[in-house]
């Protein structure tokens, strides 16, 4: 009797796990997810180190609300403004989605700066994480690019004239400036194609780049690990904890040679 029940629960388990095993056998994704979730991180990480994932969340909010807005927005000078009014005043919860996209942009930018500040103050950009800092700076620049291109889309007076001057300022750059201005405008002047061009850059080109860069960024975070806070007495990199090293890792890094040299 006991044997039969065992067999049955085993069969049940096997049936439930079959799709998971099927996926694992063909892709290795389950193992990858397991590695991601159960990989070890230093025991002393703190709340400041959630700013990166908070930034990712803000980006996901932008992506989702952006897709919904794209379903109603019309990137054409004759109808863009009306479609924004339609979204804000008529579409169900359109004001909420547009408001979240508009203010999510600010939150995204603030979080990027805060995350960068955290990494800087923790010295977390140092060997072997230099490359991830560079990817982060590129993400910051792309995020600001999203802010610049998205600002034109409501096609109201503020948007239009801020962008005219913004493009003209890009145009003053030596060598590349005129080409950049022409690329952004789709011509020598701001014209009917400029709006759809900004729309394409805003919702296809830069978000694609950002998504790819975030993928690389996370890959490097997982590969290289998260740093301990620099002040931590039990920071990873200190070696086994035996209470003999009140200064934490400092006695073992460059500073020890500095002291010996003195």
């Amino acid at each position: 009797m006991a044997t039969r029940r065992m067999t049955r629960s085993e069969q049940l388990q096997q049936t439930i796990m079959y799709p998971v095993d099927w996926l694992e056998e063909r892709s290795g994704l389950v193992g990858g997810l397991r590695y991601f979730l159960f990989r070890k991180v230093p025991g002393d990480i703190n709340w400041f180190q959630t700013l990166g994932s908070a930034t990712l969340t803000a980006f996901i909010v932008q992506a989702l609300t952006g897709v919904i807005l794209a379903m109603y927005y019309k990137p054409d000078p004759n109808s863009a403004y009306d479609s924004i009014q339609h979204i804000t005043n008529d579409v169900f919860a359109g004001w909420l989605v547009r408001g979240m996209h508009r203010w999510g942009a600010s939150v995204f930018i603030i979080l990027m700066f805060m995350h960068m500040g955290r990494v800087f103050l923790f010295g977390a950009y140092k060997y072997p994480r230099e490359l991830n800092w560079i990817i982060g700076v590129l993400l910051l620049a792309s995020g600001l690019g999203e802010g610049f291109t998205g600002y034109l889309l409501p096609w109201d007076q503020t948007a239009y004239w801020a962008t005219v001057v913004g493009i003209n300022i890009n145009g003053t750059a030596p060598f590349l400036g005129p080409f950049l201005a022409q690329f952004l405008q789709g011509g020598t002047y701001i014209n009917a194609d400029t709006l759809s061009r900004f729309y394409a850059i805003h919702m296809l080109m830069i978000p694609g780049a950002i998504a790819a860069l975030i993928g690389l960024h996370l890959y490097l975070v997982i590969r290289l690990g998260v740093t301990s806070p620099p002040w931590s007495k039990e920071a990873a990199g200190t070696g086994p904890l035996n209470g003999a090293s009140p200064n934490g890792r400092a006695t073992r890094t460059g500073l020890s040679r500095f002291r010996r040299g003195r």
């Binding site: 804000t88 600010s106 004239w161 005219v164």
Partner: peptide, 19 residues
């Protein structure tokens, strides 16, 4: 939202987003 963009009447304040 502001008034609709009008390249003809040029009473504008070229002010970007706060960041």
């Amino acid at each position: 939202y502001d008034d609709p963009a009008d390249p003809g009447t040029i009473n504008f304040v070229p002010r970007p987003d706060w960041y």
